[in-house]
Write a protein that binds this DNA or RNA. Structure first.
Lengths: 136, 136
DNA sequence: TATTGTTATACTCTATAACTATA
DNA sequence: TATAGTTATAGAGTATAACAATA
């Protein structure tokens, strides 16, 4: 019974998730961006998106709850959001230079905080790799 | 830039959390218990709790959102919930034999499903240990 | 008629505040 | 008066359904 004495994976993952979220919150606030805003900026970092619906699917969000996020990011000049000339129903989404700068700045701080957290455990590389595989 | 090419920890942990939750859902439903109900049964497995508030704190829940959960578990004979004779304001909480059986049955199935998931990665033991440390 | 994006609405989850009963 | 538990209410967050624009 002793070797089975650990919490369920789900419980541990959830607790870690809450902890990470709490760690990121002040960083995001300091840069005036919400978690969803940051998620969108990060999703657009590697390339523009065609259509809001596909972006929503990519980040596991409902298309309707993306809209206020995009409104805000656009209003602040962090993303471009233009009708596709070929099909004016769809919106072409991409980062502005300032959006890219903000994403990089926030991500750098988050990564630094993650490193501090990870430095407390032994098998950092194995953990991160396994986490990547399990969440892929 | 290539070695930095991984999602943020938070994103990966959240995705894995969603996946684990989806995995557990059918097991919980099959046993007619909600996630919070299972969390309560599991918290009581290692010993009774004195006062609902301390139980709530132990599982990171608000005391008010515990009440319908306890109502249901009690009505189904899975927990005992009696006023403390020494201070009749507080409720003494514990598992009934049937509650203990249900907790064990559900947990066994969840562990089995976890094992299948974990079997796909290489450093299982290291991952679980690191996860335990980071979430502790 | 079908599809993209938007708005309006409803629903779920959670927390806050008011209440009761004991002390 | 203070505390444990409960109930009522309100607030986020999210999803569903109706709508407008374009194809």
């Amino acid at each position: 019974m002793a070797e089975n004495e650990r919490p369920d994976l789900g419980a541990m993952v959830m607790r870690l998730g809450r902890r990470l979220l709490a760690m990121e919150q002040p960083i995001l606030e300091q840069h005036g961006v919400t978690m969803w805003g940051y998620v969108v900026l990060t999703a657009l970092r590697d390339g523009p998106a065609r259509a809001q619906a596909s972006l929503a699917a990519a980040i596991n969000a409902d298309k309707t709850r993306l809209i206020p996020v995009l409104d805000d990011l656009q209003k602040r000049g962090l993303i471009e959001r233009d009708p596709d000339p070929a099909d004016r129903r769809v919106r072409l989404l991409g980062l502005t230079p300032e959006g890219r700068r903000l994403q990089q700045a926030v991500q750098a701080e988050i990564r630094a905080a993650e490193e501090i957290m990870l430095s407390k455990i032994k098998d950092q590389a194995a953990f991160v790799r396994a986490l990547g595989e399990l969440s892929a």
